[in-house]
Design a protein around this nucleic acid. Sequence first.
DNA 1: ACCACTGAGTTCCCTGAGGGAACTCAGCTG
DNA 2: CAGCTGAGTTCCCTCAGGGAACTCAGTGGT
Lengths: 156, 156
Amino acid sequence: MQRTRFGDMPCSIARTWNVIGEPWSPLILRDIYVGVRRFDDLQASLGISRKVLAERLTWLVDQQVLDRHPYSDRPTRHEYVLTPRGVELCDALLVLARWGDRWLAGADGPPALFRHRSCGATSHVTLHCSHCDQPMTASDVDVLDGPGAPAREETP
Amino acid sequence: MQRTRFGDMPCSIARTWNVIGEPWSPLILRDIYVGVRRFDDLQASLGISRKVLAERLTWLVDQQVLDRHPYSDRPTRHEYVLTPRGVELCDALLVLARWGDRWLAGADGPPALFRHRSCGATSHVTLHCSHCDQPMTASDVDVLDGPGAPAREETP
DNA sequence: ACCACTGAGTTCCCTGAGGGAACTCAGCTG
DNA sequence: CAGCTGAGTTCCCTCAGGGAACTCAGTGGT
């Protein structure tokens, strides 16, 4: 956890960052998303320190991004699964992956491909407007104060 | 910078994380995106330490996410602007913001609203498939090895 | 009954990154 | 020429991340 707490800032990016912004968190999410669900498997797959992995998992469960799910009593064993919140966070991972594929993949090409299950094509995500369904990207957006914005001084 | 380097992993999420995964980076990007461009303004707006701010800006310029742009010689003054790469990273911020709005905004509602310039509506982004244009989210995707994936052992 | 093994964490110590405040430095401004 | 401003540096301190070893419950093998 970094020194400054982002969770209290009046900014949804900062708050989201507070949840998954720590080192390793998105990679843990990615692994669980693709089916690596157990502590030791995660540790081996990521090469993360066990200490940090334990910390992150507890945090992500606290944040209701993951659920700790027993798959065996006697002995007690469990695996981590994504909650609906967690699955939606993976949407953001798809966008990050797309950016990395576009700008950082070397001559080898992208390390992973994404197949859209409903149309069967290997493709990638694009951003659209929830209202008009047309493409909508950062260059096409104005940011306005919302109801949860901090009160600001009058500028008469 | 965290101890482990994510940039060398064969994973576009990890590589992207290597670029903007450090604490403060996405918030710096957000600020520049909404028009805060100068060192002192950024420092004041974020409450970040000047040391860390200087480090992050240099790093983001190195990564070609930002451009250091002089707006005055004599005295030399400059401001930071987004490169095309940087603007596309802001797409990811829109998705993070959407998640935060949906799951973390309190009773006050979202701190910011996003207006789609071309249709004028206050809306948010949704993910679509680049191939069929239909909605495409993490729950609707299969992840496959790509050309840049590490060679894996035969499993005969 | 005894031993090794496995999954899932803890504990301990060391190093290095983040925070804060003060300092620098060039070029205006009054 | 004293002070101000933008844009960083420098210094020091603390605490989080890394690594490896340790724990602990339950199980399977002999």
